[in-house]
Write a protein that binds this DNA or RNA. Structure first.
Lengths: 197, 197
DNA sequence: AGGCATATGTAATCGATGATTACTTATGTG
DNA sequence: CACATAAGTAATCATCGATTACATATGCCT
């Protein structure tokens, strides 16, 4: 638990691997993530990584869980900046969701790449449950409004990330957010109404 | 061009590889697709596959292009079954999009997995351009309504595929489609109005 | 028919990867 | 201080994408 950097033992290899994996995924995406490359970057043998992560998927799952934490933080940030009306708070959730996706496209992609993750991981589920959309999962069926709200923000996020809106959105983050906020505002009220009944 | 199955030459190896790759992607997904396994399944040496596809990505791209053809067919089918009113045809596009996604989740996933594809492939772009949502790309910026329409159908498709609506949707295809059709119908008119101005 | 360019396939090989195993070294607790 | 355990190494396997040099079949041209 203490930091021993004298020799041999790394100190906190697990965290170091997580850091390196996060850095790599942000920069290059999940596809090219390699345990060996991570191990080398942290100056450790390939096999050592498997002492802390039984799988490549286990590492990816941990990173995805961290992604949910960041997404949650983004939503809370937008909520804290918004007025304290129900409608403003409702919109802030969507804006935070989209803002996170635009800022962390590779993390967003990983979080919705079921093949690369262990979806039954408890820590992963716990972090996801902090997101309003996810927290309603399991608590009975979602209403029409809830499905639409999630669908809109998720679809817009994904399509924007993948460049399908590149002719329709400014190049910089602030411009994208402003335009997407307008887009969502166009249906916000009706979705909110559907979501409440 | 003729079918010679006497010996050595395969006859139509390229198509055989495409068939096998499509079968594998449908059954297992893109992640585990392997050129070697495909080659073995078609009784051919691994290197032979590279005669017809310079890359693994080139093979994946061809399959994705086929996916767009199938998605287009699904949309046309829903349109042909729908009434000949503007609103009914508008809704049929969305229903066809979602129906395809539910029927071919792995193909749908591949078509929106930019890392695995060569997005600049001409054949791929040509097939995609037959989908109403994609055909508006490049023809000036999309309006608010168009972005919302695409976002809704795409987001609902993806979330449904990934099981995030599993408490809210029936287990069978027909049940899912019925519910999702209701969901989309709840905002169809307002989106259509936005999309037309 | 004969000959030859080309299309198509094989076999061998490279480097990287995920994963496992047996072994070694450090840690810290009774 | 001894010893169980945690944490790392080194070696190895099978698989993968990709390239190369080589072999064989096809079909066109005269």
């Amino acid at each position: 638990m203490n930091k021993r950097n004298k020799s041999y033992h790394h100190g906190d290899l697990k965290q170091a691997l997580l850091d390196e994996a996060l850095r790599h995924i942000r920069a290059e995406g999940i596809e090219s993530l390699s345990l060996r490359a991570c191990s080398k970057a942290v100056q450790v043998s390939p096999g050592a990584a498997f002492r802390h992560f039984k799988d490549k998927r286990e590492l990816a799952t941990a990173i995805a869980a961290h992604g949910y934490r960041l997404m949650c933080a983004a939503i809370l940030e937008y909520q804290s900046k918004a007025e304290d009306t129900e409608m403003a708070q409702f919109r802030a959730v969507g804006e935070g969701y989209v803002a996170f996706a635009l800022n962390e496209p590779n993390l967003f992609h990983l979080m919705f790449a079921p093949g690369q993750l262990d979806s039954s991981d408890e820590h992963l589920k716990a972090q996801a449950a902090k997101i309003p959309m996810f927290s309603r999962e399991g608590s009975g069926p979602l209403g029409v409004g809830d499905m639409l709200v999630w669908g809109v923000v998720h679809g817009l996020s994904e399509l924007a990330i993948q460049g399908h809106f590149k002719d329709s959105l400014p190049g910089d983050f602030d411009g994208k957010m402003e335009k997407l906020t307008q887009v969502m505002a166009a249906v916000g009220p009706s979705l909110r109404a559907l979501s409440q009944k």
